[in-house]
Design a protein around this nucleic acid. Structure first.
Lengths: 246, 246
DNA sequence: CGTTCGTTTGACGTGGGTCAAAGACCGTGG
DNA sequence: CCACGGTCTTTGACCCACGTCAAACGAACG
């Protein structure tokens, strides 16, 4: 089920109480999200417009083509961002992790669908509300712009990967990039959680589930990675990097 | 050769004369470039920082990895934006047409190389100069942000194309998207110029030159397109759209 | 009119897709 | 505690879309 809690739906004192526990000031992802550029007073202003929204594994946050009425900060969990071709072929554009902002392009309609791969907590804003705040805060706009630039660079990496890499290179590069992303949000370990299944990985890398599985097995047999339940341990980063051919 | 003309390298009266002929107010791409959001007084301010830069077919504007000291508006011509893998495999990230802005991400280093496919005219700014202007003009920042969002959407289209489309679908979708882009800058015709060669097209679509050529021939033989020197005429847009499977 | 460089076409090989069948994992209920 | 059914993963056998290699073709230019 989809659980939403408006931050100010209750009486003021309850609201304040909630904030002292769960407010932006205490937010786990504040320093890695777009909010990191906001002063505390600005944070309160934004918080007044925010709604917490949690969703369970497998639930959909929004669907490709729907009017983009909301934008989101991901607080916890992983989302899969997918686009579909009319005939059902699927491309996973990326995975949203804690600290990521959804709705960066501020467009009329969502260009992807977003589904929770595990229990997810988000901070939701009405797009219009958010746009108004952005209009008044150039430094927030700048932060969004810088994020967009970063996303663009990541998209280019992925274009190169999809267009010019072999299946093995794709998988190696994917594992390394996932590790790098987890590292930046505080999970620096050679054991990388894989919240997506083989199908999700394959749809991200432009291959079939079977090929993704075969490549994972091959890397495992070569002792470059170790398959563990729910993830991988990267045993030989050097060789993995060489295989990724970046 | 690379020809650069600083807008104020000459005596003031010469400079003003140049501007009355070639200044921003008369700029052919003003209304389709980032500059479209600037008032006339702001335009003059920006013009003082601008340098015209022309390059001949085949010349390089900047190379992947170089310090990004400049940003550019394309005034005329076509540039190919490529990324290289260490072993020489090439992915064309896109083509820059008149009105496009190069250096959108405002990063320290260029993430692609830009080469002229035909005679190109650009409007160059020192990145620092430009960043300073942007800092002072939130509406310019917003315009850049919107462009970045648009680029991001285009990149997503291309990810879907590279990851999930067949060679024939790729070529069909490419021709249609190129036509759409030319249409938006005032060249609305079913005859589409192809400033890039088969190799450039192939490197953009994640295939070999030979496959690109075969698909073009196949579409030609089916009378869906007509190959003409330097371009294509799109004879049957309906069938082309059906083949593109969007 | 020959040289050069890009394009087209053909013959053949292969990486990864397709189809199918085990196997592993997990929550549920007996 | 184990048996069961559903779901995801792995593995194998086969096939095809596209890559590779090579030769012929054609337009542009001195």
């Amino acid at each position: 089920m989809l659980v939403e809690t408006g931050s100010c739906e209750r009486a003021a004192h309850v609201c304040r109480h909630r904030r002292s526990e769960n407010g932006c000031a205490d937010c786990k992802v504040r320093l890695i999200s777009v909010c990191s550029v906001l002063a505390l007073t600005e944070l309160e202003e934004l918080e007044a417009l925010s709604h917490h929204l949690t969703l369970g594994k497998g639930q959909t946050l929004f669907r490709q083509g729907e009017p983009a009425n909301s934008v989101f900060n991901v607080i916890e969990g992983t989302l899969r961002l997918t686009r579909l071709l009319p005939d059902g072929r699927r491309q996973v554009m990326g995975f949203a992790l804690p600290g990521d902002f959804l709705g960066l392009a501020l467009q009329e309609h969502y260009s992807v669908s977003a589904e929770a791969l595990d229990p997810v907590r988000t901070c939701r804003f009405e797009r219009q509300d958010f746009a108004t705040v952005v209009e008044a805060k150039p430094h927030l706009l700048k932060s969004l712009y810088e994020r967009a630039g970063h996303e663009l660079t990541l998209a280019q990496d992925q274009l190169l990967l999809l267009g010019r890499r072999t299946a093995e290179e794709k998988v190696a590069a994917f594992l390394l990039s996932l590790r790098a992303r987890f590292a930046r949000i505080g999970h620096n370990s050679v054991t990388v959680e894989l919240p997506m299944g083989r199908q999700g990985m394959a749809d991200h890398l432009g291959m079939t589930m079977e090929t993704a599985s075969r490549m994972m097995s091959r890397l495992d047999r070569a002792h470059i990675i170790l398959l563990v339940p729910g993830g991988v341990r990267l045993l030989d980063l050097d060789r993995l990097e060489r295989l990724a051919a970046s």
